[in-house]
Design a binder for these strands. Structure first.
Lengths: 356, 356
DNA sequence: TTCGGGATAGGGAACGTTCCCTATTCTGAG
DNA sequence: CTCAGAATAGGGAACGTTCCCTATCCCGAA
């Protein structure tokens, strides 16, 4: 995208600001308007018993008229409950995290909680992620859902000791934090099995180290393992970055082609698979004619039939739902201790991988 | 995606929960640990003057040792400031909103604010969106950024009267609320001009009503207008849903093909364009050979060269940045009143639209 | 008529901060 | 040695709620 200059945005108009109604009304304002005490207002609006029906009506009318919205900060202080879940996702712009976010929000409200989200950006330094969790804690959220392929579990544990926490979307087996994830080993192996069954004997796997992505390293290790079991020759290529960076992809694909005889490339994500396919295209090659390509994640819009990526689908809405259930169960004392749940994914039969 | 059964997730393990360290420490705990008063702790940690250097060191050490994180609720109450911006996006799973979210977060932290996000899901009823804004207000955010193609401005104005507010990513000219958006008229017209220049004389435009999407109706109206100016015959097809729903797309595309002689389809978004391309594919047709197709938005991953969608790019990170600047300027009294800023987008020359 | 007791309303403390104001300590000049 | 005044520390109110406890009201029964 070209850099936009200041000239690109034209002020269309501006009107003098008349912020009305003065400061935000408090419970005292409502009490005064309704001619009752603040205690009565509190009970009337929260539906607590001990208030006459006609008083409730009167109070509600006064609250509506003033546009009263109770101060959640004060409520949190006094009631020692915020009914809020803190969600951290590494990169909201990625469809993978975006879908998780939506699932969290839906299930949280189904369970009677609000979800407050803090986000990073793809290139977030780890230290910033820790600070984001701290921000969430400062809001006194009652539970924490952490979605980051990068933040080490040791950085999460201190928070988990204080607040019910779940690590979502990545394999984690630490006994002190709950986790919900799509079975990465099963997924990596399943997809690799498919590639082996298609008859490929020399396969390039794009790998991560655990430092750069805990999730993706687990699945790519499983791919390598399963391919080797099928006596397939495996060539590993490091791709430490998160999404598919153009130059990175180009150089990796060139190296793969230069290695000679490779008939399939297994990318660690759909995003990377797209970058690989783009690189191949630039080199005048295409999948699966010249070389097979697989992705991983299986989330819209990557799954469009136009691209037909052969991939492995992670049931994100299910992961989201179970994650929220886990923290809420912890909060409400319905569950004791950390639980680890691994959910099965499934193969997406695309058109980018074919028999040799 | 098939429905996952409970059998799909296997508990991997569970350990007895030992939530340590008791309740979250307060400023009093830190004060006791450091052997000073709470006032000194407050000043030491906030960097306020009037505390001896060695006391600051001592207090910080005590706070670290206890894992003290100040209660933002209490701080907000006392200081009458929360340094928090409330962001509402309609559907976090959509790359369009996801990118905006990232931009908001980055610019907010650059300006010294934290951003708290509330999300809907594509099918959010309007009433729920209003409640989400109320939730944000209850947190006493200092500013509000609203991103929803659907929520009518009348529902936003009551909030804008109380709190600095900006409507982001959609054209809005109401004098009482700021807005930042990509020039929808310029974009719709620019893309239509391109289609006309390619020689198309009979074009299908997929339109929205303002009720279903304020943003998309503005751009499609501009498309229709510009095409008519070029004396191109325009056939309008309603597509009230938000993203590209498969059956919906199929029936619309069938209607377009049945209309006969249409050489180009202008979709209201890239998401819809993909659905249209998929439908065409199912019908054995392809773009641009049989019919040209254009999208709108120009955001990753829709912009992949593999799809090569002819589209119009909205500079989302720029929109995000200016939106945050606008609310923050309002909060800090650097700007008086509502401002409307329209930012130019640009044509993406793809391969799905060609000369007739 | 009086009184008990249920229904309803009000008062006040507490939550964890910040911020203002006062108390104490320290320093150096006269 | 005394004292002014700066530097530093501490005390207390306030923020807007909730929640517990007490006060008031009203009704019916004795």
């Amino acid at each position: 995208m070209r850099e936009l200059t200041p000239e690109d945005h034209e002020p269309v108009g501006r009107t003098p600001g008349e912020r009305q109604s003065g400061p935000v009304p408090t419970i005292h304002d409502v009490a005064a308007a309704a001619g009752v005490s603040k205690s009565v207002v509190s009970r009337a609006l929260s539906g607590a018993p001990g208030v006459a029906a006609r008083t409730v009506t009167k109070v509600k009318a006064a609250a509506d008229a003033l546009g009263y919205v109770a101060n959640a900060n004060a409520r949190g202080m006094s009631a020692h409950r915020t009914h809020t879940l803190g969600v951290f996702v590494r990169d909201a712009a990625t469809p993978f995290y975006g879908h998780l976010l939506t699932a969290f929000q839906e299930q949280a409200s189904a369970r009677g909680y609000r979800a407050v989200t803090a986000t990073g950006s793809g290139t977030f330094p780890i230290e910033e992620e820790r600070r984001a969790l701290e921000t969430l804690v400062s809001l006194r959220v009652e539970g924490l859902i952490v979605c980051s392929g990068a933040l080490p579990v040791e950085d999460i544990i201190p928070f988990a000791r204080r607040i019910p926490t779940v690590i979502a979307g990545r394999p984690e087996a630490d006994p002190s934090v709950s986790s919900v994830y799509c079975d990465e080993v099963g997924g990596g192996r399943g997809l690799a099995e498919r590639v082996a069954m298609l008859g490929h004997r020399r396969v390039a796997v794009m790998t991560h180290t655990a430092e750069s992505s805990i999730t993706q390293s687990a699945r790519t290790m499983a791919m390598v393992e399963r391919l080797r079991e099928a006596e397939v020759e495996v060539l590993a290529f490091r791709c430490e970055d998160f999404g598919g960076d153009v130059e990175r992809a180009d150089s990796i694909v060139q190296a793969i082609v230069a290695a000679g005889g490779v008939t399939a490339v297994m990318a660690p994500s759909d995003s990377w698979a797209i970058s690989v396919l783009e690189s191949l295209r630039r080199m005048g090659l295409s999948a699966p004619t010249d070389i097979s390509v697989t992705g991983y994640d299986g989330v819209r819009p990557f799954t469009t039939s136009l691209l037909g990526i052969t991939s492995w689908r992670q049931p994100l809405s299910h992961i989201g739902r179970l994650s929220v259930d886990d923290v809420v169960d912890q909060i409400e004392g319905l569950a004791e201790g950390a639980r680890h749940r691994s959910i099965a994914g499934e193969l997406i039969e695309g058109r980018t991988a074919a028999a040799i």
